[in-house]
Amino acid sequence: RLIESLSQMLSMGFSDEGGWLTRLLQTKNYDIGAALDTIQ
């Protein structure tokens, strides 16, 4: 599930440099909407 969510976020133009996006998705239970809300 992480790989699916991460690949979708990467395709939106986000980077996972340093693993920050992986950690964010894990804390949000791989919910892309919740991750995007946090980023904004």
Rank of each mutant, 00 (worst) to 15 (best):
R1Y: 09
R1P: 10
R1W: 11
R1G: 12
R1N: 13
R1D: 11
L2T: 03
L2G: 06
I3N: 13
I3W: 14
E4K: 10
S5A: 15
S5N: 04
L6N: 00
L6A: 00
L6W: 03
S7R: 15
S7T: 14
S7G: 12
S7M: 14
Q8S: 08
Q8G: 07
M9P: 00
M9I: 06
M9H: 02
L10V: 12
S11D: 14
S11A: 15
S11R: 11
S11N: 13
S11G: 13
S11V: 12
M12S: 04
G13W: 07
G13A: 04
F14E: 06
F14L: 07
F14Y: 14
S15K: 09
S15A: 08
S15Y: 10
S15P: 03
D16G: 02
D16P: 04
D16A: 03
E17N: 09
G18T: 08
G18R: 04
G18C: 14
G18M: 08
G19F: 07
G19C: 12
G19I: 01
W20K: 03
W20H: 04
W20Q: 04
W20N: 03
L21T: 00
L21Y: 00
L21W: 01
L21Q: 00
L21N: 01
T22I: 06
R23Q: 11
L24N: 01
L24R: 00
L24K: 00
L24D: 01
L24I: 09
L24S: 01
L25V: 02
L25D: 02
L25F: 01
L25E: 02
Q26G: 08
Q26I: 15
T27I: 14
T27M: 14
T27A: 15
T27N: 13
T27D: 15
T27Q: 15
T27P: 02
K28D: 07
K28S: 13
K28E: 10
N29P: 02
N29I: 08
Y30I: 06
Y30V: 04
D31T: 04
D31K: 00
D31M: 05
G33N: 13
G33H: 13
A34G: 07
A34R: 06
A34T: 07
A34D: 09
A35Y: 04
A35L: 08
A35I: 11
A35G: 03
L36F: 06
D37R: 12
D37K: 13
D37A: 14
D37G: 08
D37F: 05
T38M: 12
T38V: 14
T38F: 15
I39F: 04
I39R: 01
I39Y: 03
Q40H: 14
Q40K: 15
